[in-house]
Nucleic acid binder design. Structure first.
Length: 511
RNA sequence: GGUGGUAUCGUCUAGUGGCCCAGGACGCUGGCCUCUCACGCCGGAAACCGGGGUUCGACUCCCCGUACCACUACCA
């Protein structure tokens, strides 16, 4: 099909995929799916110095966890491969030669050291039309000298030849037209001598062209180099098939200024990576959303609303709904400060709306972590237990703290609650309560409640004191679900046993 | 320093000249519900960066200023 949407997410395997990168991937994915297009995952490993083992696997695993599907890529294959730039050397060489032959680029012999000193000597030094003739390159040097240097094995780079004083127009789908004068664009290195690979700029344009990418959706940090990319499309004669540009606003630090970085997560106590990452070099461990107990749907939903809005009051979106509702018109131009509190709320919402049985399955490993053999309890028991506490948690990891009493009798009782609810005469009341409960045949919540509350009323006891003392013996503290729902689930024998233990172990606190 | 981008409650944002003495959500907060903690429900505080224009009328358009962000590598 002609004009079929093709987008790519093109991360560098230089470490764990950053949450901002995840957002970029997500928007690419949403746009692709919405238009029945293709989502490409291209690995941009043209910086051999920064390559990190494991990073590529991490990217794949993270996207998979989040449900961001890839149609073409290193793993998925496709008709436009290879999808890893380090495997495309020959392709890039061919196109660099084309540029050189057309006079759109030239070779330069200046070493990194020479450039460094130049930058120190000259304020605002820029390798461009105004300076290139004073540098060592194929434009400034006689041809014989150039040939001699090459023959002598001198290292050189290829630079784009930027014509000065021309307005370069970039059309961006969320920012409109951006114009930049070519005089402020430098003769960027297209091909590096250091590792015999192209730079991002060249590889990016060649690959997007060859892979027939229709929309380049990337972070705002690329906006300044977009004009250079336009110039490159022109130099290759590909202007008419140039993709649409879309520069997404950045994810910023929650406090202070600047874009969200790895350090912010450590500093503020929240993950900036989707998955936990073990750095192979330093051995450092960075926390991930998955390991923190986030649901992938919640992370996706939260990220989608950072920099995009539906134009309505709806906030909870499934992936399918996002695909339907997404649009660049409703993308913000402004960087979004990362609000971890809102992220927690999203997770809370998803947890609360999750099916009890499904949540129970996620919770089972947590039980094991705390030394509980889940097989002692029926699936139904665990499901009903988590169902009762899910409205009061934000993370899967919070379930244990709130639900442990369902799986083990309390060994400690909250002093604050003892002080308030456990008086000298409480043990006697509890003994009477045991007798009342023993007499109940049907422990169904409503029935048991009617009987116990009736007994409290008939004997003119204090409802709050009795119920909270009761709760203290069963739960260990004065919080949690409805008492008679707990009683129904745990059963008469267990409840009575716990009250007895409470009578035995809880001593009034007097000051 | 240069270039580009951006500018509405603390935060994410709605708003595309009159519907806005600015709406929603998170967070904060008062109350209700209630055996407790949550959930839920009802309420509250909280914003159009500043200055000039344009216009009958500007949060919305233009200019200037300011602030913030990004880029300014043989990194992506």
């Amino acid at each position: 099909m002609e004009n079929k949407v093709r987008v790519r997410f093109a991360p560098s395997p230089t470490g764990p995929l950053h949450i901002g990168g995840v957002r970029t991937a997500l928007f690419n994915y949403l746009f692709a799916r919405q238009n029945g297009g293709t989502m490409i995952l291209r690995i941009e490993d043209t910086d051999s110095n920064r390559f990190v083992p494991g990073a590529e696997d991490y990217i794949n695993e993270a996207l998979q966890w989040l449900g961001i599907g890839i149609d073409e890529g290193v793993r998925e294959g496709g008709n436009f491969g290879p999808y890893k730039q380090s495997e495309r050397r020959d392709i890039y060489r061919k196109y660099v030669k084309q540029l050189l032959d057309n006079g759109k680029a030239y070779i330069a012999f200046d070493t990194p050291e020479e450039l460094d000193t130049k930058r120190k000597e000259v304020a605002n030094f820029q390798y461009d039309a105004s300076t290139r003739m004073s540098m060592r390159n194929s434009l400034s040097l006689p041809k014989e000298e150039v040939d001699r240097l090459i023959a002598a094995g001198e290292k050189y780079v290829v630079r784009i030849l930027v014509e000065p004083n021309r307005d370069v127009l970039v059309n961006d789908l969320i920012r409109g037209e951006v114009t930049i004068n070519s005089s402020v664009i430098d003769d960027k290195v297209l091909y590096k001598s250091a590792d015999d690979l192209p730079t991002y700029h060249l590889a990016n344009i060649v690959d997007d062209h060859l892979m027939e990418v229709t929309h380049v959706i990337r972070g705002e940090e690329w906006l300044p180099s977009a004009p250079l990319h336009v110039l490159l499309y022109e130099a290759f004669g590909w202007k008419d098939t140039m993709p649409q540009f879309v520069h997404l606003p950045l994810l910023l630090k929650p406090d202070g200024k600047g874009k969200l970085s790895k350090r912010d997560g450590d500093r503020l106590g929240f993950p900036v990576f989707p998955l936990e990452w073990h750095d192979p070099v330093t051995g450092d461990i960075s926390s991930g959303y998955r390991e923190r107990g986030y649901l992938p749907q919640a992370v996706v939903n939260f990220l989608a609303l950072l920099g995009w809005n539906p134009g309505t009051d709806q906030e909870i979106f499934s992936m399918e709904e996002l695909i339907k509702a997404f649009s660049f018109e409703h993308c913000s131009k402004k960087g979004a400060k990362f609000d971890f509190e809102k992220g927690k709320w999203f997770n809370h919402e998803y947890l609360m709306n999750m099916d009890d049985a499904e949540l129970a399955e996620i919770f089972k490993p947590e039980l094991a972590k705390h030394g509980i053999d889940a097989s002692q309890f029926s699936d139904d028991y665990i499901a009903r237990a988590v169902g009762m506490i899910k409205s009061r948690i934000n993370f899967v990891g919070d379930i244990w703290d709130n639900a442990k009493f369902f799986f083990q009798a309390p060994t400690e009782y909250a002093p604050k609650d003892i002080k308030k609810r456990w008086k000298e005469d409480t043990p006697e009341t509890m003994r009477l309560l045991i007798e009342v409960i023993k007499g109940i045949d049907d422990m169904t919540s409503a029935n048991a409640e009617a009987i116990v509350l009736g007994w409290i009323k008939d004997n003119e006891l204090h409802l709050g004191n009795v119920m909270n003392a009761f709760r203290l013996t069963v739960v260990g503290e004065c919080k949690g679900p409805h008492m008679f729902d707990i009683a129904e689930l745990m059963g008469k024998d267990e409840i009575i046993a716990r009250i007895e233990r409470g009578i035995e172990n809880i001593k009034p606190i007097v000051e």
